[in-house]
Amino acid sequence: MRHSWGETVDIPTGYLNTASIGIPPGRVAEAMRTALERWAQGRTTVAEYDPPVAAALQGYADLIGVPVSSVTIGGSASALIGLVAAAVPDGARVLVADDEFTSVTYPFVVHRPRGVVVDSRPLAELPGAAPGYDWVAVSVTQSTDGAMIDLDGLREATERAGTRVLLDVTQTAGWMPLHLDWADAVVCAGYKWLLSPRGAAWMALRPATAAGIRPLAANWYAGADLQGSMYGLTPELHADARRFDASPAWLSHVGAGVALPWLASLDLEAVRAHAVGLANRLRAGLGLPPGDSPILSLDGFDGASRTLDEAGVSHAVRGGSIRLSCHLYSTEEDVAAALAVLTS
């Protein structure tokens, strides 16, 4: 058991894999256990899940710096991005990063039969190339290696050219302060750095962007009056972004309703300094230059994955490289455990 930012986290030494799965703080796990017990005992009601859904919505809005009225909920990042991709016009040109995570790219690629063009460029080239495209869709922090887009450069280039921007912050929100009300769409899955159960995701939409999107998965939960939206043929959906809501995975939002407001209450500059600082100690211990991301990708360590597993160092392998990631609950001991294997 370790103590982190006023919470407890029950993980062994060597957990460096938040980029795959985030670990819930004690309060999040306890909320989940209580909800599970109530369900198992037949004591739950539909209405009791509304407050955690609302709390997570507000937490997400606070984490990325947007009005809560602009945020909708879904089950995954790709499903939410799919709403945006379905709304781009025939023949639209979309720019993505080379080796971008496919939850960002595939929702656009499947529209090639109607003339949608999807091109990829190296991440660093996206701001310069953006003016030739209708949309740029990119993860702020790349899943493969932790590389980060130049947000200021991308904003300046796209605002000048009128290019729309979709940002995926699944590998960014929760450790880095964000102010993204300028982006047309900002999507995030909660089960990594937001320390929530899988099955909860959010997307913020600028009003002009939302106006051009059809609520393709319209359902009772998107109704302005939930009780009045369960039957009939005349949908009266929310006037704001909630009209795009998917019916929530209740238990997932129970956890998210605790995790996101807690993360939003923290000094995220301090969280970033902690997580990136530990990642840079890993880099320094391996003779690598410092970076600005808590995710690092290591080449030239053939066979190290098995040895790391045997030593109890949780990690991932992406593109044939070892991927390690540090979050707010990571410690010097975690870094030392990894370095003991990788420098031997």
Rank of each mutant, 00 (worst) to 15 (best):
H111G: 03
V46P: 01
G162R: 13
T234V: 12
P207K: 13
V96L: 02
Y329L: 04
A211V: 05
G82E: 07
E236N: 15
T105Q: 06
G82A: 07
L251C: 04
G6L: 05
D309A: 12
A31H: 03
S305E: 10
V186I: 14
F101P: 00
R155W: 13
R2W: 08
K192T: 04
A270D: 04
T8N: 04
T72G: 07
V110A: 04
A185F: 02
E333F: 06
R243H: 11
E310I: 04
E269R: 11
L266P: 07
S265C: 03
D10K: 10
G26W: 00
D267T: 14
A161M: 12
A79P: 01
A304K: 00
E48C: 04
A256S: 12
V84S: 00
G199N: 01
Q142G: 10
T102K: 11
E269G: 11
S70A: 15
A275F: 00
C326N: 00
A259K: 11
F108Y: 13
L288W: 02
R242G: 05
S76L: 03
G174L: 07
S344N: 06
V71K: 12
A85Y: 05
L308E: 09
A256F: 01
V335I: 15
P25N: 07
R272K: 11
P177E: 15
Q227I: 12
C188M: 07
T158Q: 05
S321W: 01
V276L: 14
V109T: 15
L251K: 09
L298Q: 02
V118R: 04
A161L: 13
R272I: 03
V9P: 02
T163C: 01
R27V: 05
A311D: 09
S120P: 08
S196P: 03
L123W: 10
D309N: 15
L83K: 00
T8A: 10
